[in-house]
Write a protein that binds this DNA or RNA. Structure first.
Length: 474
DNA sequence: TGAAATGTTGGGGCG
DNA sequence: ACGCCCCAACATTTC
């Protein structure tokens, strides 16, 4: 009589290296790797459209990687608690391992699952695979969660130990009998018709191997100019690791370790490395906020914004989503998002600011659109970043910081290459008018819309709306 | 991880 | 030669 297998429940940790749950499970004996498509638990935050495309590719990659090690990936769909209950009864598993999640609905679910399994004497062990610093491990001197990034990151980065991440287990022992698995294809995570994701494969390689290559390419070819280059949407200077990090195809400890090693080999990289790692810091800060303020995805972090006089105009929202605002940089970003499932960070800030401040549309609507269209949709980062832009968040941009999309374009896309790539109507505009085409003598022949709001007027209106808030300036 | 308005300064044109 | 004025250029303040 052989010992029963153990279960490794994969969630947002779709990798074999630096995966403490997998490693611990592999040491016990036969392992059943499991992924559960649970669309019921998250409610309105169920995995969005673009992220489902990514998930499909990532699961396919994980499945292949497991097969190379003599294992498999078992797929099941449904409420995770019920699925796991069924699976443990089917194969007699007495032990399950997973890496922790931090979304409020996942914490609630996993806590309940753990209690239920333990009541049946199934042992549960959880680990940290996704964060450099888990949210409950650091507090301010006043024993409060951090609400300002700089002191947060100072405290957090001081706690990070730069250990070599664990390698993937070389082999995984299969169970005597493989449980039933559903078919990834039949989950239909990818769009069929219209196939709006048809260009995604030109831009992304989901999966652990793709993530590692992305990191090494970034460190080798872009880190040396990251500090300033990261702001240029017309150039490839960002890491583009966010979707890989979201699904845990690579972990932040691996990224940290590799970037630190690069900086130690080449001291000139230190400034750029610090800047890059601080971006990981913003990711950590977002998780910290989401954990301590679980209403972050829905409610203003600063309650003063609860009385903000929004002007939730449906036509304006639609124009924004379609990239038809008449502001080239905003429209380029929104079209890049639709075509590729991502948007350059600098442009995200401008496009998001435009929705909230020029159009006075609630940040929650922008967050919902991004949730559905971004391959890197991540509840912590998305919620915290939208609140940052709106001015309603922790350590947020002051409301009166209103981006001028023309000036931002001229500053960060000086040759207009980014705009020309995504807004083809403006292909033949010269550099002088590419970010303000209404000033071009041939504007009428460009078939590009007039701005849906005039900047100066919109700015004044936003400042006026902000001034009406009580206590907003505190 | 702003932009615009307002203030200050100093070089140069000009009577 | 000198003072006046204009206005970039830069700095500071305000939103």
């Amino acid at each position: 009589m052989t010992a029963p297998p153990v279960i490794v429940w994969f969630r947002q940790d779709l990798r074999l290296a630096d995966n403490p749950a997998l490693l611990a499970a592999a040491k016990t004996g036969a392992v059943i790797p499991l992924f559960v498509l649970d669309d019921e638990t998250p409610g309105r935050w169920k995995t969005g459209g673009a992220a489902r495309w990514w998930l499909n590719e990532s699961l396919a990659a994980l499945s292949t990687d497991l097969e190379k090690r003599g294992s498999r990936l078992i797929l099941r769909r449904g409420r995770a608690g019920e699925v796991i209950d069924d699976l443990t009864r089917e194969n007699g598993a007495r032990e399950i391992f997973w890496n922790r999640l931090y979304e409020p609905f996942h914490i609630t679910r996993d806590t309940a699952i753990k209690a239920s399994l333990e009541s049946r004497s199934v042992k549960v062990t959880s680990f940290n695979a996704s964060l450099l610093v888990e949210p409950w491990t650091i507090k301010t001197g006043a024993d409060e969660p951090y609400k300002v990034f700089t002191p947060f990151w100072r405290a957090a980065s001081g706690k990070i130990e730069d250990a070599s991440p664990a390698a993937a287990p070389k082999t995984l022992r299969p169970p005597a009998v493989w449980p039933r698995s559903e078919s990834l294809t039949e989950w239909r995570l990818k769009p069929a018709s219209p196939n709006w994701a048809r260009l995604f494969p030109d831009h992304w390689s989901p999966g652990e191997a793709g993530a590692r290559k992305r990191l090494s390419d970034f460190l080798a070819h872009a880190l040396d100019r990251y500090a300033d280059g990261r702001d240029r949407p017309d150039q490839n200077n960002t890491s583009r690791l966010s979707p890989h990090l979201h699904w845990g195809e690579i972990g932040p400890r691996q990224v940290w370790h590799a970037a630190r090693a690069a900086a130690e080999r080449e001291p000139k990289l230190e400034r750029h490395t610090a800047k890059f790692l601080a971006e990981l810091g913003w990711r950590e800060f977002s998780y910290h906020l989401l954990y301590h303020f679980p209403t972050l995805p829905e409610r203003n972090f600063r309650p003063a914004f609860d009385s903000f006089p929004w002007d939730d105009n449906e036509a304006a929202f639609t124009a924004w989503t379609k990239g038809r605002t008449g502001y080239p940089l905003v429209d380029a970003g929104m079209r890049e998002l639709w075509a590729t499932g991502t948007m350059h960070n600098r442009v995200r800030m401008v496009a998001a600011s435009f929705l909230v401040k020029h159009l006075l549309i609630p940040w929650q609507r922008g967050a919902a659109w991004f949730w559905d269209t971004l391959v890197d949709a991540d509840l912590a980062s998305n919620s915290a970043s939208w609140q940052w832009v709106a001015g309603s968040g922790a350590d947020a941009a002051p409301y009166f910081r209103i981006f001028n999309p023309v000036l931002q374009g001229e500053k960060f896309d000086p040759d207009g290459a980014y705009v020309r790539r995504w807004v083809t109507e403006l292909r033949d505009c010269d550099n002088r008018t590419i970010h303000r085409p209404w000033d071009a003598s041939n504007f009428a022949s460009l078939s590009y819309e007039n701005p849906i709001v005039e900047h100066n007027r919109a700015r004044a209106r936003a400042l006026d709306a902000f001034a009406k808030l009580s206590g907003a300036r505190a």
